[in-house]
Amino acid sequence: MSDKLLNIFHQSHSGSWAFIVILFVVSAIFYRQKITPMILRLFYLIMLVSGIGMLIGYGFPVKYVVKGIIAIVMIGLMEMILGRMKRGQGKESSTKILFVVWAVLIVIVVLLGYGIF
């Protein structure tokens, strides 16, 4: 894979992560809206496609495969949190625990992505 294509994947991947975090927070604050979760799901797809492209380009290093698995778990957590908030279960302690787990996982994913771990 060419360096130019790998750079495109990298830029779209890191940009989509930034948008995902911002859109998730906005969706959690305005949980009754329908458009922000839809846009958030679009960025999930962009993040997944660019991440898989980078995995192929780098030859599937174990560190990044683990990061990808954690990212898929994070997507599930975000959908669970938004679903609970939409159903009115947002103030329960289990939802707050999911928020804490999500925050810890986002830190781990960012640290793995930038090579700190």
Rank of each mutant, 00 (worst) to 15 (best):
M54H: 06
M54K: 09
M54T: 03
L55V: 13
L55F: 02
L55R: 02
L55G: 07
I56E: 13
I56L: 13
G57D: 02
G57Q: 07
G57V: 11
G57E: 04
G57M: 05
Y58G: 10
Y58S: 10
Y58I: 03
Y58T: 09
G59F: 11
G59L: 12
G59P: 04
F60H: 09
F60D: 08
F60V: 09
F60C: 06
P61Q: 10
V62H: 06
V62K: 07
V62E: 09
K63H: 09
K63L: 14
K63W: 01
Y64H: 07
Y64K: 15
Y64D: 07
V65Q: 07
V65S: 02
V66A: 06
V66I: 12
K67N: 08
G68C: 06
G68T: 08
I69A: 14
I69T: 12
I69M: 15
I70A: 01
I70L: 13
I70Q: 08
I70G: 02
A71I: 00
A71Y: 00
A71F: 00
I72V: 13
I72L: 14
I72T: 15
I72W: 08
I72S: 12
V73I: 15
M74W: 04
M74H: 01
I75V: 15
I75T: 03
I75A: 07
I75R: 01
I75W: 02
G76I: 15
G76W: 02
G76K: 08
G76D: 07
L77T: 15
L77Q: 00
L77K: 01
M78I: 05
M78P: 00
E79R: 01
E79C: 10
E79D: 11
E79L: 08
M80G: 11
M80N: 12
M80L: 14
M80Q: 13
M80A: 14
M80V: 09
I81C: 03
I81D: 00
I81H: 02
L82E: 07
L82H: 07
L82G: 09
L82P: 01
G83E: 10
G83D: 11
R84G: 03
R84Y: 02
M85W: 04
M85D: 04
K86Y: 13
K86E: 04
K86I: 13
K86P: 01
R87T: 13
R87Y: 12
R87Q: 13
G88C: 04
G88T: 07
Q89E: 15
Q89N: 15
Q89F: 14
G90Q: 02
G90N: 03
G90A: 09
G90V: 05
K91E: 12
K91F: 04
E92R: 11
E92I: 02
E92S: 15
E92M: 05
S93E: 15
S93G: 04
S93T: 10
S93P: 03
S94T: 05
S94A: 13
T95C: 03
T95I: 03
T95E: 04
T95Q: 00
K96R: 08
K96S: 03
K96P: 03
I97G: 01
I97K: 10
I97V: 13
I97H: 10
I97L: 15
L98K: 05
F99Y: 06
F99S: 00
V100Y: 09
V100W: 07
V100S: 09
V100C: 12
W102H: 08
W102M: 13
W102K: 00
W102T: 15
W102V: 08
W102F: 14
A103S: 10
A103E: 02
